[in-house]
Design a protein around this nucleic acid. Structure first.
Lengths: 338, 338
DNA sequence: CTGAAAGCGCTAACAT
DNA sequence: ATGTTAGCGCTTTCAG
C-alpha cells in the first residue's frame, strides 16, 4: 500500500505538503502540486478513507435506512430501487457514498443511531420506512441531517410525489368524460403513508370543484396497499344500490385487484366502468385494458431528495415537505360516458 | 465523543485493557471485563470505525456493485431489492455492513476497484451487472473476494436460480397435459444472463426427454427481456404454418407481451394455447388468466450469496457456480389439451 | 492478567 | 510556499 509518505520520500517534499497537493489546497506552489500529483498517479496512490475520516471527522458517507420487512412497503416497494439509484448518483457527484445502516451487527446490539455514529455518517436518507419505528425516530431527532422519502416523519424534510392535486385532477378528468358518479377506492388511512389520506382529500376536493356531492358510499377504504384489498374494496363498493360509472383508485397495485373484481362482477372496462389510478408501475401497461394512471417520477424523487440533502449538508434550512409532480399517462381504462 | 481513554480513566485501567475487554479478548480478567463493559455502556461509548479500520485494516464493509442504467437489467430488476435485502441481513448477522461502490466520486475519477480499496471493503457483491463491464472485471480479477448474483462472471462464484432443470420440467409439465407441439419463446442469447441460453438448453433437453423433435420454427429468441419483445416474438411464432398448442416463455415480463399478442391474435389462454413462464414476479398473479410460472426465490438467492461470501471471507475455497431451486406455481394459464 | 510504547495514514496548527 | 510537531482513536506488540 502506498501512502503519502512514499510520495513525500520520492518527491522530496514533506507529508503535509503532499497532503495539501492531493487535496487541492491553496497554499501550495503550482509546480509542486503537479509534480506530487503525477508521482501519486504513477505509484497508484489511493487515499485511505479511515485515516482521513479519523482526523477530519467527516466520513463522506450517507446512511440509508428503510423498512426491511418484505411486506411491499419497504424494499419491495416498486419505487424503492429507483429512488435510491437516482439519489446515489446525485450524491456521488459531490463526493458522498451510500452505506446501509444495519439494525444489529454481529451479536452486539446497536441501535440505528449508534450505527450512524459508529460509521460517522454525514447524513441519512430514510426510504419507505415505518414512521412509528422508534429507532428511526431516534435518528431523526438527532443532530444528523435526515431526509425521508415517501413516508412523512416529524421534524425532518420529506420528499413525496404530489398527491392532492393529481387526485383533484383525476376526478376532473373523469368529469370531463361525462362521469358524474365517481367513486374512490382509497388507500389505507393510517399515518404510514401520506398518500392514503392525501389522495382521499384530493378526491373530495375534486368533487367539490365540480359541485358533485361527496357520498360516503362511494368511498371505500382498502385495508392494505395490495391487490387483494383492492379486489375486496371493489366488491364492497358494488354492494351499494347506487353504482358509480367511474373509479379513482389510489394505487396501481390495488387497481389490479379492482380490475379482477370487475371481471368477476361482469363489468367491462372502460365500457361499463372507467378506472383511473396512481403510480404507473411496470404492470400498469400490461393489464387489459392498459391502465390510465398518474406516473410517479421515481428518478425525480431521488434527485430532489439529494438536492435537499446537499443543501442540508451545506448548513441551509430545508422545508418540511417537498412535492414532486406526477404525470397523467392516458391509456385505455377510461372512456366517455355513453 | 467518549473514547476508550475516557473509560480507561474512569475504571482505572489502561486503554489497551479497555480495548481488550470491549473486543472480548481472552487475556483479560472476567471481573475487569465486566466492569469495563458496564462503564462503557453507562457512558454510551460507541467505537470509532475509522480508528478501528485504520489499525486493523479491516473495514467490516461489503461493497455492492450493480448496473446503474435503468434498463430493467440492474436496479430496476424485480429480483434486485430482495436479493440485496436478504444478503444484507445475513451479512449483518456476522458483523458486516453494505456500502454502495461509486463509479465516480466528486470530480475525481476513480475506478470501481480504486473505490473498493479506498473504502477497504472486505468483499464485494455484484448484482445484475453487465458481465462485459471492464471496471467490474478489474474488481473480479483483484484479490478482493467477489460473489455475483444472476449474471455469470469469469473467475468468481455466481449464484443464480436453477434454469436448466425447471426448463426441462416446463416441457414435461406441458407434455403431461397432453401437449406435443410445444414452442419456446427464449430470452436474449447474449452472454449477459445465463438465464437466456440455459432455459433454451433445458427446453431442448425436455423435448428430447419425451422423444419430441426439436423444431427450429418453434424457438423464437426475443430481443430483450421485456414485454414488447415478448409480444413481437409471439407474433413471429404465429407466422409459422404449424402452430404450437403450448409455449414455455423464458420470463414473466416477456409473458405479458406474449399474452397481449395472444389476445390480438384471437387466441384464448389456456383454451387455445397454454403458457408456462419463469420468475413469478408480482404481476404474474394479476394477469388474466393468472400465470403458471416457476418462482425464483429471491430471498434464497441472497441468503446463498451471503453464505458463500462468509465462507470466502473465511478463507475457504468456493465453487464457481451455485444454483438455487425454483418452485412451480400452478395457476391458470395451462390446460390439458382437448 | 495488565500496561507502556509505538504506530496505523492522514491533516491541523503553527513556525519558518 | 513548505516543513515540524502533534494527534485523531484504536490496537498490537511485548515487558512485567
Amino acid at each position: 500500500m502506498v501512502t503519502i509518505y512514499d510520495i513525500a520520500r520520492i518527491t522530496g517534499y514533506s507529508a503535509p505538503t503532499v497532503s495539501k497537493a492531493l487535496n487541492n489546497q491553496s497554499d501550495i506552489g503550482q509546480k509542486t502540486k503537479e509534480k506530487i500529483i503525477n508521482v501519486a498517479k504513477e505509484l497508484g496512490y489511493i487515499p485511505n478513507s479511515s485515516a482521513k475520516g479519523l482526523v477530519t471527522r467527516k466520513s463522506w458517507l450517507i446512511g440509508l435506512i428503510y423498512e426491511e420487512d418484505e411486506l411491499g412497503v419497504g424494499i419491495e416497494h416498486p419505487l424503492f430501487a429507483s429512488i435510491i439509484n437516482a439519489f446515489k448518483q446525485e450524491m456521488e457527484a459531490v463526493g458522498y457514498e451510500l452505506i446501509f445502516i444495519a439494525r444489529n451487527l454481529g451479536g452486539r446490539k446497536m441501535s440505528l443511531l449508534e450505527h450512524c455514529r459508529y460509521r460517522h455518517v454525514d447524513g441519512v436518507l430514510i426510504v419507505n420506512a415505518d414512521a412509528s419505528d422508534t429507532e428511526i425516530l431516534e435518528v431523526t431527532k438527532s443532530d444528523i441531517p435526515c431526509i425521508s422519502s415517501n413516508i412523512v416523519f416529524p421534524d425532518i424534510c420529506t420528499v413525496t410525489s404530489e398527491n392532492i392535486r393529481p387526485a383533484v385532477e383525476a376526478v376532473q378528468y373523469l368529469y370531463a368524460l361525462g362521469h358524474r358518479s365517481i367513486a374512490h377506492i382509497a388507500g389505507p388511512q393510517n399515518s404510514v403513508a401520506a398518500a392514503g389520506y392525501e389522495r382521499l382529500e384530493g378526491y373530495k376536493a375534486g368533487l367539490v370543484s365540480r359541485q358533485l356531492p361527496i357520498k360516503s358510499e362511494f368511498i371505500v377504504v382498502s385495508d392494505f396497499w395490495n391487490s387483494e384489498s383492492g379486489y375486496k374494496a371493489m366488491i364492497e363498493l358494488w354492494k351499494n344500490k347506487e353504482k358509480p360509472t367511474a373509479i379513482f383508485c389510489a394505487s396501481d397495485i390495488m387497481s389490479m385487484g379492482v380490475m379482477n373484481a370487475c371481471r368477476d362482477l361482469g363489468l367491462r372496462i372502460p365500457k361499463d366502468i372507467s378506472i383511473i389510478s396512481f403510480d404507473d408501475n411496470l404492470w400498469a401497461s400490461f393489464s387489459h385494458p392498459p391502465l390510465t394512471t398518474f406516473r410517479q417520477d421515481r428518478q425525480a424523487i431521488g434527485k430532489k431528495a439529494a438536492e435537499i440533502m446537499k443543501r442540508f449538508l451545506n448548513g441551509e434550512k430545508v422545508p418540511p415537505r417537498v412535492l414532486v409532480p406526477v404525470t397523467l399517462i392516458e391509456r385505455e381504462s377510461c372512456a366517455p360516458i355513453t
